[in-house]
Design a protein around this nucleic acid. Structure first.
Length: 651
DNA sequence: TTAGGGTTAG
């Protein structure tokens, strides 16, 4: 039921006749270059951050397509091909447009390729000279050099700049500071002053932002005191940056104090502190701040709503969330994607898929974040078919997809144990570069192991560059799921040798592995070592795994002793496991105790009656079995009808 | 200047 329709090729518009005509005009060499992204209009317009839409106005300019192709190669990091293509452009007399130079420099910066950055810089100097009038301002070169850690190049360029603008100083100072070169940043700061520049708030702001990005609290403090001492005119952006600095560095109290004394109330500063509170798990204070903010009459925006709704869902405070939702409706912002999406997420986190859908329907132009939020919502309530439907819809419309969507769908395939859809999605995500590091990769490991292919799960795992605790746990749990205890334990050793620390869930995997392979002694050792060596406190879940270990091995008395030992607070599951063990190993005396306790704890759970009934029945104790059946009927407990599914010819 | 969606278990 969950299989996907066959996937079309990645460039859906390759058969467009207009495009074919356009391609005929360009040299044959051009068409041989394997780059579907270059010439796909959908790719060009799919990202809001794409610079291509604004370039389109020059569409008729000579060499437009070539310029487009060149920057596309550079954006993909294919600089070798880009340089080859550039030499072809040079020989054909095609110039690089100013906007395209800018993108080339941006790409070099993004890919940290100093070598190529220098090359394109030299190319520009050779062809158009050092002229801002061409439309390539020096600041994008400065930025590129800082992004590529070409500090000397940046300094040289800056020193040679005939007309240094405020912005250029700002880039230099923050560039140094963000890269940890604080002495250089401060020296330049003083140089600027001695050169007769007034210390504009923008420069102070640059330095402060760099300090908060680098978490350089001390430097930030010094700038703060400089601001106070020199009696710089109070400035709302400086104040806001200071609030942000203290938040980022974890000094929430200082930040709150500053906020109280700001010259002018500013929504960004309030939001910043709210973020600080929520990240520190102080959700209640975030809500109190929101309340105060409203009393101060600060104009609310979607950033505030998003963070306050997050606090509400973390607190599981539906009432507060509803109020915020109401507030958003009153302001008429619920149709705005930036406010609407956090509402969807809030309802998803509360498990109210219906409310989430209603909120989603109100969004006038849902974006990929909205879609991924609603897909996650459906996945959480096991409405897997809807997840696929949405995905097919997005894909058929060639809408923007992202790694979040794929990660959720991998989880769906894991839940459905559907390797067909799973591997198609995997391939699709790979082609689009949308398997996110760790998140997506761990979900894939689980997807393959759950759908029966431990071999693929292992291969996927081995391809993870730096597996974290979650990724290791995923593969360990996968091995445990397939009863491959020795592999799981081996991986656990490897994990530690890589310096990755196990967490509570890792131990569930380890104990499960032991339980499926009858490793009683080892399980006990691991359970005991948890708090001793790993500082992970065992919970009832871990003890239940241990109960399961004993039960599967037929050591029912041991299982009972553990439950009865007082070392943990047994829950219904503890008794349920023991009851199952007693049924398998025909121990009615213990089974009776287990059943009674289980029934006492979960009187509404049909399974409690059915399992107790089965235990008596399998021992031929029909009178007791009948009394259980009678008790179940008397209490009106009904067994849930179960179902399963198979896929036949994609249906 | 401030945020929003996802990873591991029984």
């Amino acid at each position: 039921m969950a299989s996907l329709s066959p996937l079309p090729p990645p460039n859906p518009s390759s058969s467009n006749p207009e495009r074919s005509r356009a391609l005929n005009k360009i040299p044959p060499f051009f068409t041989k270059i394997p780059s579907w992204i270059s010439l796909s209009s959908s790719a060009a317009s799919s990202s809001s951050s794409s610079p291509l839409p604004f370039i389109r106005k020059d569409k008729n300019q000579k060499g437009f397509l070539e310029n487009l192709h060149l920057v596309s190669l550079s954006k993909q990091g294919r600089f070798h091909e880009a340089r080859q293509f550039l030499s072809f452009m040079d020989s054909s007399g095609i110039l690089i447009g100013a906007d395209f130079y800018k993108i080339l420099f941006e790409s070099c910066g993004a890919q940290r390729s100093l070598h190529d950055g220098r090359f394109f810089h030299q190319h520009m100097l050779k062809n158009i000279g050092r002229s801002d009038s061409y439309g390539v301002p020096g600041d994008c070169l400065l930025r590129m050099y800082f992004d590529c850690a070409g500090f000397d190049d940046a300094r040289k360029l800056f020193e040679e700049m005939p007309n240094k603008r405020l912005n250029d100083w700002g880039i230099m100072i923050s560039g140094y500071a963000e890269n940890g070169l604080f002495h250089e940043a401060i020296a330049l700061f003083y140089k600027m002053k001695s050169d007769g520049f007034r210390l504009e708030p923008t420069i102070i702001t640059c330095l402060l932002r760099a300090s908060s990005t680098a978490l350089e609290l001390e430097l930030g403090r010094q700038i703060h005191s400089y601001v106070v001492k020199t009696g710089l005119v109070p400035d709302v952006s400086v104040d806001t940056e200071l609030v942000n600095l203290y938040v980022k560095c974890g000094c929430l109290e200082s930040s709150a104090l500053l906020l109280d004394h700001m010259v002018e109330s500013n929504v960004v500063a309030w939001t910043s502190l709210m973020v600080g509170y929520t990240q520190a798990g102080r959700q209640v204070e975030a809500l109190v701040l929101f309340d105060r903010m409203m009393q101060h009459g600060v104009e609310l925006d979607h950033f505030v709503f998003s963070i306050v709704l997050k606090a509400c869902s973390a607190l599981e405070d539906r009432e507060a969330g509803w109020q915020v939702h109401g507030c958003i409706i009153k302001l008429g912002m619920d149709s705005d994607v930036s406010a609407g999406t956090p509402i969807v997420d809030f309802y998803v986190k509360c498990g109210s898929i219906g409310d989430a859908c209603n909120a989603f329907d109100r969004i006038s132009q849902p974006n990929e974040v909205s879609w991924s939020a609603i897909i996650t919502g459906y996945a959480q309530v096991d409405r897997f078919e809807e997840c696929f439907e949405i995905f097919r819809y997005l894909r058929s419309r060639d809408m923007l997809l992202n790694s979040f969507i794929y990660t959720s769908l991998f989880q769906v395939c894991a839940a459905l144990a559907d390797p067909n859809s799973g591997s198609q999605l995997h391939a699709d995500a790979l082609k689009r570069g949308l398997v996110s590091k760790l998140y997506g990769e761990s979900a894939l490991v689980t997807m393959y192991s759950r759908s029966g292919n431990l071999d693929y799960a292992r291969r996927t795992f081995e391809l993870i560059a730096e597996p974290d605790t979650v990724a290791w746990t995923a593969i360990i749990a996968g091995c445990a799921y397939h009863g491959r205890a020795s592999e799981a334990l081996e991986l656990f050793k490897r994990m530690q040798s890589h310096g990755v620390k196990p967490n509570s869930i890792t131990f569930i995997g380890i104990l499960n592995a032991c339980s499926h392979s009858g490793l009683i002694f080892e399980a006990r050792e691991y359970l005991d070592s948890m708090s001793k060596f790993y500082r992970v406190k065992p919970t009832v879940d871990h003890y239940n795994c241990m109960v399961d270990v004993y039960c599967r091995a037929g050591q029912l008395e041991e299982a009972f002793k553990l439950i009865d030992s007082g070392s943990f607070e047994p829950d219904a599951l503890s008794w349920k496991i023991l009851l199952g063990g007693c049924t398998t190993h025909q121990n009615v005396d213990l089974g009776k105790i287990a059943g009674e306790n289980y029934l006492k704890m979960e009187p509404e759970d049909a399974a409690a009656y059915v399992l107790t009934f089965n235990m008596y029945a399998s021992a031929g104790r029909w009178a007791e079995a009948a009394s259980i059946r009678k008790m179940m009927n008397g209490r009106g407990v009904k067994k849930e009808v179960s179902c399963s599914w198979i896929t036949v010819k994609d249906k």
